[in-house]
Amino acid sequence: MNIIVIGIVACEIGFWVVLAAGLGARYLLRLRRLSSVLLLCVPLLDLLLLALITWDLVFNGATATFAHGLGAVYLGFTVAFGHQIINRVDARFAHRFAGGPPPVKPPKAGSAHVRYEWQQWGRMLLCAVIASVVIGVIVLLVGDSARTAELAGWIGRVWLVTGVWFVGWPLWLTITGGGQAAEGAANAGPGTR
């Protein structure tokens, strides 16, 4: 198995283990300081994966594979969406174990839904920028286009996904009104047409 794939899987498992440990320390053990320290360790996993990808390509002389590009996009995703994921899990954990309010669900219709989709796409845009920068820097460090062709191909992939997401969700919802009809029907109540 590819060392980068192992690194990605280890980082994903590590993310959830550190997150669970941090939230468990906060809500079950009431150790807020330990919880904060554990949750601050989450970005260290990203740095470890970045170091592994860089080491493998720059210092180990490996030729970039699909996994190297996936690792760069994974880094972009965790930076762009990680805080939101942590907040959502934290809200669920607080509700379940500490009597917190029920987690707020994303809006399903109307202008709030449109705003939400634009925010989510903004996160995807940040993911694409981060992944592209990481890939670009590594390509420059390696300095051998034959060894980094697969890695550089990921820039096009991540921007294609970002473009499809843009057209399919925030732009489409903005043009169509974001489900205003569904929101109006829900507000009309039963028996009203």
Results as ranks from 00 to 15, higher is better:
140 L>Q: 13
94 A>L: 00
118 W>G: 01
75 L>W: 07
68 H>F: 02
119 Q>I: 15
125 L>T: 09
105 K>C: 08
116 Y>R: 08
107 P>C: 09
124 M>Q: 12
98 A>Y: 08
115 R>D: 12
67 A>D: 09
83 H>I: 13
141 L>T: 04
104 V>W: 03
84 Q>S: 14
125 L>C: 09
103 P>I: 00
127 C>K: 06
73 V>D: 03
114 V>P: 08
112 A>T: 08
80 A>W: 01
114 V>I: 15
98 A>M: 04
115 R>F: 11
107 P>I: 10
83 H>W: 15
109 A>N: 12
92 R>H: 12
142 V>T: 05
105 K>N: 14
69 G>N: 00
75 L>Q: 07
125 L>A: 13
94 A>Y: 01
107 P>S: 10
118 W>V: 02
92 R>L: 09
124 M>I: 07
101 P>M: 10
137 V>G: 07
96 R>E: 12
89 V>H: 02
77 F>C: 08
119 Q>E: 15
81 F>D: 02
105 K>Q: 15
71 G>N: 02
82 G>W: 07
88 R>C: 00
137 V>M: 08
116 Y>Q: 09
95 H>W: 12
81 F>M: 03
110 G>F: 09
108 K>R: 09
124 M>H: 13
112 A>P: 04
90 D>K: 06
130 I>C: 02
120 Q>H: 08
87 N>L: 14
116 Y>I: 03
95 H>C: 06
81 F>S: 01
